[in-house]
Design a protein around this nucleic acid. Structure first.
Length: 470
RNA sequence: GUCCCCAUCGUCUAGUACGGCCUAGGACAUCGCCCUUUCAAGGCGGUAACACGGGUUCAAAUCCCGUUGGGGACGCCA
């Protein structure tokens, strides 16, 4: 390919950006970046009744969050209606298209009838031979499809796919309200925008022969095609709202990191040997359509979570603090505008880094550090805040009160002394204290925790725990 | 109904193009052990797959045919 690579992501704003769309965008973006080409964003909003500005915004938000930046666009097909009209008229003049006066209702009826009889539900072409317009009706425009021979789609991922032209029917390219339709606008735009590689979902493979005939009606060169296998839900059907969270923004809101999300979806259909974790630059360097698989993939939340935890562990504490802030506010762990001491927070976050799979979990775990008071988990309380452990709690409280320099190593010494005094195991002392301080039976190392929480709150919480026992 | 696509552990996949290096490798999940103040993290180990049936061949996960299963498309949606 002598021409510079030009690819596009062309979502329709009739819904938010979902996982599958995000992966299509990602593969296009990676292909463009790998080949030092151009990545174009084009909004396919020809369906005026279902497209909304809100969806355009969330799609753009999602792409930005994922860091998939585009070099051209966003173009909007709505702004280009004159162009499509012009192209449609050309086809009309060349006798390659005709006016169709059938109403959507009639068409729908005939289609259902055909399906019921087990026949191909295709348009019978009755308006093609029509001499005069049908009065009182505004026509749509149909493109004439050949009925003989075969059409071969040479796909970069699937190889040569053969379609019988007899399967094709005359396709509406302009609706009666004057708006153009998908199979027509993609071709016009891909030609006009000099797209070299059309990388899109598998669900478009069947549309490709139709589009190929439109290319040839205009005498245009065809781009290369690459149809990506779909991503399915756990029940192996097309991903939809039924499968719970599928929108990209919902993953952001659940506390996933953009890089982890990218890393997860790139591995749905693409692999580079046994490698699991890739930096952006590695992806750009390594990505190739040849390594894209043919079979569909099933979304698996557990692996995404694992990847996210891996990314959280290697994210700098500084960055993590920044990222977790909105979650702290949203979860009402801090109030809007509340300032936390940076150095202190960084110590707290540090202890939680390898225990949090999402930013949301991190925010929740931060609660016991930040809150003034904590509540004891019921089971934890029953098990550890009782007579048996009371003397330990009292001793720990007394000793910590006297401790001069309130840092983890010294706190550890206090614990060790009491372990010795009672000739018991550390666990017997650490666990009740942990429950007293954090409310739960799991937490980061207790000496660290105590240091970070500080003397005042520690003593207060120990006192409260002791009071619940006596 | 017709057409198209796909088929390796539960899931993501390596291996398939150039058939032998595959008694099929990795990762997530799961189970066990180690580490250990708890929970994680980390380390070690286990369970677990070439859909089936025919060919071709000295040799097939890899090539061919069929079956089955799954998915997708058949719109004045994209």
């Amino acid at each position: 390919m002598s021409e510079k690579v030009r690819v596009r992501f062309a979502p329709s704003p009739t819904g938010y950006l979902h996982l599958g769309g995000a992966r299509t965008a990602l593969f296009n973006w990676l292909f463009a970046r790998h080949n030092k080409g151009t990545f174009i964003l084009r909004i396919e909003d020809t369906d005026r009744t279902r497209s909304t500005e809100e969806y355009i915004e969330t799609i753009i938000d999602s792409l930005k969050w994922l860091g998939l930046d585009w070099d051209e666009g966003p173009y909007r097909q709505m702004d280009r209606f004159d162009i499509y009209k012009h192209y449609a008229e050309k086809l009309l003049n060349d006798g390659k298209a005709y006016y169709c006066y059938c109403s959507p209702d009639e068409l729908e009826k005939r289609r259902k009838e055909a399906l019921k009889q087990g026949k191909l539900p295709k348009y019978d072409g009755r308006c093609k031979i029509l001499k005069d317009p049908i009065p009182g009706r505004v026509p749509a425009i149909r493109f004439i499809m050949p009925q003989d021979g075969k059409t071969i789609v040479d796909d970069l991922i699937r190889g040569k796919v053969v379609f019988e032209n007899s399967q094709l029917d005359d396709l509406i390219i302009m609706r009666s309200d004057g708006t153009p339709t998908y199979n027509f606008t993609v071709v016009v735009d891909d030609v006009e925008m000099r797209i070299t590689h059309v990388i899109r979902g598998d669900d478009h493979l069947n549309n490709t022969p139709k589009q190929l005939h439109i290319y040839s009606a205009f005498g245009y060169e065809i781009p290369a095609f690459a149809h990506l296998p779909m991503i399915l839900g756990p029940d192996k059907t097309r991903l939809s709202k039924r499968h719970g969270a599928t929108s990209v923004t919902s993953y952001r809101d659940m506390g996933y990191l953009a890089d982890a999300f990218i890393n997860y979806i790139v591995r749905l259909g693409w692999a580079h040997g046994d490698q699991e974790i890739f930096s952006r630059n590695e992806l750009i360097e390594l990505f190739s359509l040849e390594d894209v698989g043919k079979s569909h993939a099933v979304f698996n939340r557990e692996k995404l979570l694992w990847l996210n935890s891996q990314y959280i562990m290697k994210t700098s504490t500084e960055k993590l603090m920044e990222l977790v802030m909105p979650f702290l506010v949203r979860e009402k762990i801090i109030t809007e505008g509340q300032i936390l001491d940076k150095k202190w927070l960084s110590k707290a976050v540090e202890t939680l880094k390898e225990r949090s799979r999402t930013l949301l979990e991190l925010a929740h775990s931060l609660h016991f550090y930040i809150a003034e008071e904590i509540v004891f988990d019921k089971k934890a309380k029953e098990k550890f805040l009782n007579e048996r452990y009371l003397p330990f709690l009292k001793d720990i409280k007394n000793e910590l009160e006297k401790l001069e320099i309130f840092v983890a190593p010294n706190i550890e010494k206090v614990f060790k002394e009491i372990v010795e005094k009672y000739n018991t195991k550390l666990g017997n002392i650490a666990q009740p204290v942990r429950v007293a301080i954090t409310g739960k039976t799991e937490s980061p190392g207790i000496f660290e925790v105590i240091e970070i929480i500080g003397r005042e709150k520690t003593l207060k919480r120990l006192e409260k725990a002791i009071k619940t026992i006596v």
